[in-house]
Simulated scan of single mutants.
Amino acid sequence: MNRASWWKGLLLLLIVFNLPACLPLAERASETATSGDLRVSRYVDGQGKTGITGQVVHKDSGAPLAEAYVNIYPDAVSNLLGPSQYISSPTDAEGRYNLEVPPGTYYVVARKRMSGQAAGPLAQGDYYSEHQRVITTVEEGTLALVDLQVVPMKAPMFFQKSVVDKRTETGIRGRLVDAAGKPVPGSFAVAYTDSDVRRLPDFASTLSDQQGNFTIFLPKGGVYYLAGRLHAWDMPRPGELYGRLGGEEPAPVEVVPGGFVENILIEMTPFSGEYKPGKSRRPY
């Protein structure tokens, strides 16, 4: 091998072995969807910063959405509802946001309330990320690149009282558990004024705690029918924990005005029905 060929071979080896380091981080990107979650692994050089950046756009048109907020949750215990661990400033005219967070794995959600508020229940006409949960892992010195598509809310969410805004002297207290009797935290009990539980609930509980405890505050006494839900909107998806008090034949619960019915136990098991998109008002 002559000297020129030897140098060419060495140069080729150097290029091959250093190729990944030469590529921009954003080009080493991947997205994988598992169990209804979308894991995004796209990065750009943070230039000394660590966090998440991206663009919020309308799903149908691809147009940027200004004045939206991006919420960052460390886990899904809250069903990605209520206060988040981190929240961005409003997106700019191009729908872009930047948020510094420490390294870790996060759920990323975009919302825009037409009221202009950064928090609170969503209402008809507001914008929100669709139901698939977006997860990303933030690495030291990089910005995870997470673009989010939003759609307008055409009907009220499965229920709007994800956070009870009015405490009353009348209601129902109990626990949500799975088939093994273990508590189901971060979920909701919902109440209906009739036995038709395949519709938008009339009332919803506080978010269940780590022991599965919930409280439903009611405006008056009467007969109610109860169910347990994991997600706060849409009909249950296959495998999602769901349950009705009484099973297939909903059991009535009589509530006396000015008092609480205690120790209600709702067992939640994986939903085995067929998912039908667009059934926010009538779950199934």
Rank of each mutant, 00 (worst) to 15 (best):
L207V: 09
L207G: 07
L207M: 13
L207A: 08
L207S: 04
S208P: 05
S208E: 03
D209M: 05
D209R: 08
D209V: 04
D209F: 09
Q210N: 14
Q210G: 01
Q210S: 10
Q210Y: 09
Q210E: 12
Q210R: 13
Q211F: 01
Q211I: 07
Q211D: 13
Q211E: 14
G212H: 07
G212P: 08
G212E: 03
N213H: 08
N213T: 00
F214S: 07
F214L: 06
T215C: 10
T215L: 11
T215V: 15
T215A: 11
I216Y: 03
I216E: 02
I216D: 01
F217S: 08
F217H: 13
L218D: 00
L218E: 03
L218C: 08
P219H: 03
P219F: 03
P219Q: 12
K220M: 03
K220R: 13
G221V: 10
G221T: 06
G221Y: 00
G221M: 03
G221R: 07
G221E: 11
G222R: 03
V223Q: 15
V223Y: 06
V223P: 06
V223N: 04
V223H: 05
V223S: 11
Y224F: 15
Y224S: 00
Y224I: 13
Y224G: 05
Y224R: 07
Y225S: 04
Y225E: 07
Y225M: 06
Y225F: 15
L226K: 00
L226E: 02
L226Y: 01
L226Q: 03
A227K: 10
A227H: 04
G228T: 05
G228H: 10
G228L: 10
G228V: 08
G228Q: 03
R229I: 12
R229Q: 05
R229P: 05
L230P: 00
L230C: 02
H231F: 11
A232E: 11
A232H: 14
A232T: 12
A232S: 15
W233C: 03
W233D: 13
D234R: 11
D234T: 12
D234M: 12
M235K: 15
M235S: 14
M235D: 12
M235T: 09
M235A: 15
M235F: 07
M235E: 15
M235R: 15
P236M: 00
R237D: 07
R237W: 10
R237Q: 08
R237V: 14
R237S: 04
P238V: 10
P238I: 02
P238E: 09
G239K: 13
G239I: 12
G239A: 12
